[in-house]
Design a binder for these strands. Structure first.
Length: 983
RNA sequence: GGGCCUAUAGCUCAGUGGUAGAGCGUCCCGCUGAUAACGGGAAGGUCAGAGGUUCGAUCCCUCUUAGGCCCA
């Protein structure tokens, strides 16, 4: 018959090794399948996984989010909810393209076209598959349970076609349009960078020339406008200057010339000057001036004028702003307002077009010096300074962005934004300020730029005819129906470039053959559609209805308001006008231990794999969960050490239990060992049962309300109670040799506490809890769930909660605390017994009677007196806190001293046993040599000593064969002792 | 410039309209046959600053300052 005894437990666990063992165990048993099966058909909990970009190995910050995801689903599984456990990968977009370009050593879009779009797109797919595999392995290492085979990929046909359906809906509402706008543009990637994508890392502190220009005012000889710019190349497109109509400008005379500029900006003037007059900005409006680089063909016909703009800043420049509607977003809007000409001097690689004289074919950087020279020749340059400012760069490749006029496709937010706001309000945001942030974004965001002049992404199903008419195709079937050419070449391929572009349709208006526009889609379309595509919205609406709306989603807050959260809200608003998810939970960013960003270049990045192997996944998860999710996490190995120590305490409790349960053959399934917890009498046991059930209640509440960071605090407090009070005070109950009701009571109680605790922490620390559960439960019971993660959440037993006992125990611990402080003050160690201690002002003292033994034991004091007696002289040491007073009688007599001696002696022997590496159950023979007085004392207490040190025999001689020998000295008595293990 | 968040011990952070807390770190002392643990003590705080509400404010309100995130 199989041995069903608990396995022995090492006192120092190797958490990482345990985790690998458990991983293997899980893998061999496919528990997730069993779990899903177990809860199938029950009440549903619908979790929405925000897709991780499958482009690189996972970082520590991903692990943070995935920990929450795993915890929620594990907890809901314990609670019996039916779940899908679907993970998602984000696949399409510029980020993948940029990495593949790096792999292939490409520098520009031309390289890609030369290589072949089809091959390039295949490479992108390959990369995504490669990294989704790696991320899956890493997630498994983290302990995340997901239905990995069933992960969704945003590059799937279903995902793409569902977006087509969405876009068609938008089109039917008249929201899709082609617009011209001046947008941030990456000259390397050759594409617009949408507003959504200029994230924090999208800015760099850069030094540009701060160029001061003097533009001659027409009709006023030697009068100039002083104008400032940091982008000299845009001067080729200057058509106007703007002044703030309400601010005060001055006319000054300097070097026989007259300049206009903002009064507040006079400090930029070189040399001496004299103020001629002050003049409000509005008086300067509509003046005509001679623009820069006037020999350029594009500049020939321009009538340069001064226009008003409230956005003019008094903080920098001259207060007169150079306006080039083809080269700046605000400029473009002003251009529209004042019907200015739009000049767009550069191509998509940031190179000057033909027609720009000497500048043609020059890049923006190359053009700088040439332009300065030309300006000098024209006498329009005042001075050049260096100017340092934050300037947008391409968030993927780091190249400085330019602003460029391009035709792009948009979804109008004119009506939609208000609808989305209404939907956003129906979501529960955690933290609650999430809603305000989202609304703020929605209020301020511009129309959604959905097109990108790239290769790897959603093929925008927009077919624009030369006649100006355009159509949006809503799905594969519709495409097939409308195709007039090339469908057979496309068939069998995913709806990506270049294959989808073989298909041509007929223009509904003029009948011409129409191609798809070459653009691909904004990647947030891909991620935003998943509340629909992953539930087969188009194919199986019943299934979709079963799981929609989702109950919960969790992602990193910064960024996601304008990205994923925004996208899912927008798309759900269009398709269903309903919130896609009931609760959105956000967490902050991961920084290094010093609070600085982790950067490869700084060398302070902690990689997931390294952290997992060094500190262990459970400890990482514990750190993540303990942290307030709304504050940045300063992650590092120091935190790991702290967390490890907390868990070691738990491990020690577990290992204590196992050690003695093995010695006493405690078997929780045997009748003779069992005690109904309701019949437990011992106060320590009843107290532990009570706080255990309170813990169940509080932890359940916290999980249920997504207050994850509260849980580790509750658990840590509990473990401290368990270890430093319950077990410490109960030790002797486990040690004693006789087996009685009290002993079984202790075992049953501690067993209950431990098995409950592992279930409570199982969602957070899946490995450690599994390890302990396997030994505590699976090892002894045959018909139980084979994994802790298949078990139900512990049932609270209200009748085991006893407020009264908890209160009294708390008071009791306070008294012990005071007693210790008194001993400390008197400098008398615990091993020295003392006569009595008096406590004053103790509430409900009579009820404390049952606890006196605890205080006596813990403080090693013979008598405890409540609320009687006075401070009587110097034999007492007094300590008080919060009105509670302790008075410790420190007078010692012969008996007390010898009793203290005995305890010290036993303690020394115990240390020797430990040094000799005896097992705690080993019997020994003790031999010693000492003076007569000692012999007398030891003789008198022979039996007591024997029990304490597990000696079968005590001899008044040094043993001839011995395992250890030492001279010890206590209270000036020298003793030579030797120990021998009995075999 | 606008929105949101944060400010508590050397560090990391809890917390409360009624006498300021934990962990880590430092220094002293002690306990320990479950303990790579633990306990006690000490040092260390104008709870960012200024106003207001209140019998009473670290907490609620306003402003200021600093930091974070987002937007412009």
């Amino acid at each position: 018959m199989e041995d069903r005894k608990f396995l022995p437990v090492p006192s120092i666990p190797d958490f990482v090794k345990i985790e690998h063992k458990i991983l293997k165990f899980w893998q061999e048993n496919n528990f997730l399948k069993q779990l899903m099966e177990k809860n199938k058909g029950k009440k549903k909990f619908s979790f929405l996984d925000g897709p991780i970009t499958a482009n690189n190995p996972m970082g520590v910050h991903h692990a943070w989010g995935r920990t929450y995801k795993d915890i929620v689903q594990r907890y809901k599984a314990q609670k019996g909810f039916d779940q899908r456990f679907q993970n998602g990968f984000d696949c399409q977009g510029l980020w993948v393209e940029v990495e593949v370009e790096k792999e292939l050593g490409f520098k520009s879009k031309k390289d890609i076209e030369k290589f072949g779009i089809d091959k390039f797109v295949e490479k992108c797919k390959e990369r995504v598959l490669k990294y989704s595999k790696i991320q899956t392995q890493q997630s498994i290492r983290l302990g995340q349970w997901m239905d990995w085979e069933n992960s969704y990929y945003t590059m799937s046909d279903e995902n793409n076609y569902t977006i087509w359906y969405f876009l068609k809906k938008c089109h039917e509402n008249g929201w899709i349009y082609k617009g011209e706008d001046v947008v941030p543009w990456c000259p390397r990637c050759g594409t617009a960078i949408s507003q959504h994508e200029i994230v924090t890392e999208g800015y760099k502190e850069l030094i540009h020339p701060g160029v001061y220009l003097q533009f001659p005012i027409k009709g006023k000889e030697r009068h100039y406008l002083l104008v400032w710019t940091t982008t000299p190349w845009t001067l080729t497109a200057n058509v106007a200057c703007a002044v703030h109509p309400e601010l005060i400008y001055v006319l000054i005379k300097s070097n026989e010339r007259f300049y206009y500029l903002l009064k507040e900006r006079l400090n930029i003037i070189e040399g001496r000057y004299e103020i001629i007059e002050e003049i409000p900005g509005k008086k300067i409006l509509n003046w005509e001036y001679e623009g820069p680089l006037s020999f350029l063909p594009v500049q020939k016909e321009i009538k340069h004028i001064v226009i008003p703009w409230e956005g003019v800043s008094a903080e920098e420049g001259t207060g007169i702003v150079h306006i080039a509607p083809g080269c700046g977003h605000e400029d473009f809007l002003l251009g529209k307002e004042f019907s200015l000409k739009v000049i767009c001097p550069i191509d998509e690689e940031g190179v000057f077009l033909d027609d720009y004289d000497v500048l043609s074919k020059k890049s923006i950087k190359e053009s700088e010096e040439i332009i300065f020279e030309l300006l000098r020749k024209e006498d329009k340059l005042y001075k050049i300074e260096k100017y340092s400012h934050r300037y947008p760069v391409c968030w993927r490749c780091g190249v400085e962005l330019v602003f460029r006029l391009v035709p792009e496709w948009y979804i109008s937010m004119k009506e939609l934004r208000y609808k989305i706001m209404e939907v956003a309000k129906q979501v529960q945001w955690i933290p609650s300020f999430g809603l305000e942030r989202e609304l703020d974004w929605l209020k301020n965001m511009e129309d959604w730029l959905i097109s990108k002049k790239r290769y790897w992404g959603l093929a925008l199903p927009i077919y624009e005819c030369e006649c100006g008419y355009f159509d949006v195709i809503g799905g594969k079937e519709e495409l097939k129906e409308k195709a007039v050419e090339g469908y057979e070449k496309f068939e069998g391929h995913s709806p990506h470039r270049p294959w989808v572009d073989y298909v041509k349709i007929k223009c509904q208006k003029c009948g011409n053959k129409v191609s798809r526009i070459p653009d691909v889609g904004n990647p947030w379309l891909d991620a935003g559609i998943v509340p629909f595509s992953t539930l087969h919205y188009l194919k199986d609406k019943d299934y979709w209805k079963e799981w929609y709306p989702f109950d919960f989603a969790v992602e990193c807050f910064p960024g996601q308001f304008r990205n994923w959260f925004y996208a899912i809200l927008a798309m759900a608003t269009v398709l269903e006008n309903s919130p896609p998810v009931k609760t959105i939970f956000g967490y902050a960013l991961v920084k290094d231990e010093k609070g600085e960003d982790m950067h490869k270049s700084k060398g302070n990045v902690i990689w997931f794999d390294e952290a997992a192997e060094k500190m262990g996944a459970d400890i990482m998860r514990w750190i993540f969960v303990s942290h307030n999710p709304f504050e940045n996490l300063h992650f590092g190995y120091k935190l790991g050490q702290e967390a490890r120590r907390k868990l070691l305490t738990l491990w020690n409790c577990y290992s204590f239990f196992i050690t003695y349960a093995r010695i006493d053959n405690f078997d929780p399934k045997k009748k003779e060992c069992q005690i109904d917890l309701k019949n437990v009498k011992n106060f320590l046991d009843r107290w532990l049962l009570s706080i255990t059930n309170n813990l169940i209640k509080n932890v359940d509440y916290a999980y249920n309300n997504y207050e994850f960071d509260k849980i580790p605090r509750l658990i840590e407090k509990y473990i401290d109670n368990l270890s430093n009070w319950y077990i410490r005070r109960s030790r002797r109950r486990f040690w004693k040799s006789q087996i009685d009701f009290d002993k079984w009571s202790a075992y049953n109680t501690l067993y209950y506490a431990l098995t409950t605790l592992v279930k409570l922490i199982a969602p957070i620390m899946p490995f450690l809890s599994e390890e302990i559960y396997q030994n505590l439960v699976v090892k002894v019971y045959e018909n139980v769930e084979k994994s802790v993660h298949l078990t139900d959440f512990p049932q609270i037993q209200e009748d085991l909660i006893d407020k009264d006992i908890e209160e009294k125990m708390e008071l009791c611990r306070k008294l012990v605390f005071l007693g210790r402080a008194a001993r400390e003050k008197a400098k008398i160690k615990i091993r020295q017994p003392l006569k009595k201690i008096i406590f004053l002002n103790v509430p409900y003292k009579e009820k404390l009677n049952d606890f006196i033994f605890l205080i006596k034991d813990e403080l090693n004091i013979k008598e405890i007196i409540f609320n009687e007696g006075k401070d009587i002289g110097k034999n007492f040491v007094r300590v008080e806190e919060n009105n509670l007073v302790a008075m410790l009688d420190i007078s010692l007599d012969e008996d007390l001293l010898w009793e203290g001696f005995l305890r010290e002696f036993i303690h020394r022997i115990q240390i020797l046993r430990k040094e000799a590496k005896f097992d705690i159950t080993d019997r020994i023979i003790l031999g010693y040599q000492a003076d007569k007085k000692i012999e007398e004392i030891l003789d008198k207490n022979m039996e007591y000593i024997k029990t304490e040190i597990l000696a079968e025999e005590i001899r008044k001689e040094i043993l001839e064969t011995k395992d250890i020998e030492e001279k010890i000295e206590i209270n000036n008595h020298k003793i030579l002792v030797s120990l021998k293990r009995k075999i």
